[in-house]
């Protein structure tokens, strides 16, 4: 088995609106996978379906090689799921929630729990309802890792946390994921966090997984080309890989996937005064990639969008 998570043509709709559309996701074992997308594009719904908290309309899910619809308790024990907002029983103390959760597992790393709680300076006597959001997230993470899961599904784990707590949480997560073979799938709106920890990213737009490639590959593939014409700019013809086209005075800002020789020649033929290719970080690349496309978006695939093969062939 090489994939910890496999989905096959997964679909889900709410009230007649398709929220997840034909999702084919493959997350290899040992990968840290960041699932990105704007609000309401189906990230949480996807993660809920993976965790068995939402029923797909159609399609199949395999988690650690087992059909998610009939996941055995033994396999479920190998999977941790952190829901958005870290819902825990507010009336319980940390000690009580640890004891409660522990009762469900055969394997439980008590030493690790003690060390992590100590690291976060969390008292076992503290009541969950009186903890800050960051502390609840820390308790939630502690409970998730204590059974030593092979697969972690984290739904926006840093949502609502301040910058310091977020950094602390992520550093803890990085330490945890250093164990070989552990797979993490997480969604987040904080692109800096994703850039820091994810080996691979998937970008969902309107329920469709539009990009699925290594993080570095995504950053390198999406670029902004500023073309200054020194006069009223002409209309840019349809070009392979062109995602966005904005006019700013005498300039045009063009966003490309896999900007190459072919596109450069086409732009030079329009007689510009200056062409500047701007490299983007993950956040800018994501924003440019997902903001109001005016043309059909190219669909990246893992194979054709390989980091080795930067070039126009990656774009559809």
């Amino acid at each position: 088995m090489t994939d910890a998570i496999v989905t096959d043509r997964l679909c889900k709709s709410y009230g007649g609106q398709l929220v997840v559309d034909q999702l084919n996701l493959h997350v290899p074992v040992g990968t840290v996978y960041g699932l990105l997308g704007r609000n309401g594009v189906g990230k949480s719904t996807t993660l809920k379906m993976l965790a068995g908290m939402a029923c797909p309309d159609s399609g199949e899910i395999l988690l650690l090689g087992e059909d998610a619809a009939r996941l055995s308790p033994a396999t479920r024990a190998r999977i941790a799921y952190l829901a958005e907002g870290h819902p825990l029983y507010k009336w319980m103390t940390i000690g009580q929630i640890v004891a409660f959760t522990r009762s469900f597992y055969r394997s439980w790393n008590t030493d690790l729990v003690d060390k992590v709680l100590d690291h976060f300076s969390l008292s076992r006597k503290a009541r969950i309802g009186r903890l800050s959001k960051g502390q609840v997230a820390q308790v939630s993470l502690t409970l998730a890792i204590a059974p030593d899961p092979e697969l972690l599904i984290l739904d926006d784990p840093t949502l609502g946390l301040d910058a310091n707590v977020r950094r602390d949480f992520l550093e803890s997560m990085i330490q945890i994921i250093q164990r070989r073979g552990r797979t993490i799938l997480f969604s987040s709106h904080i692109l800096g966090d994703v850039e820091r920890v994810a080996d691979r990213v998937g970008v969902m737009i309107d329920g469709v997984l539009r990009a699925d490639c290594p993080t570095e590959r995504f950053k390198q593939a999406v670029c902004k080309v500023i073309v200054d014409f020194g006069r009223s700019p002409p209309t840019v013809p349809p070009l392979v890989g062109l995602l966005g086209d904005w006019q700013l005075g005498s300039r045009r800002e063009l966003v490309f996937v896999d900007f190459g020789v072919q596109q450069q020649a086409a732009i030079e033929a329009m007689g510009p005064v200056r062409i500047e290719v701007v490299a983007l970080n993950l956040e800018d690349a994501f924003i440019e990639y997902t903001r109001g496309a005016r043309r059909p978006l190219p669909i990246f695939t893992g194979e054709s969008f390989d980091v080795q093969g930067l070039g126009a062939q990656g774009a559809a």
Partner: peptide, 14 residues
């Protein structure tokens, strides 16, 4: 209403 089903139902028990 508390959202705790998401915590409870993921435990390894039917």
């Amino acid at each position: 209403m508390q959202g705790t089903y998401l915590f409870l139902l993921h435990r390894p028990v039917a």
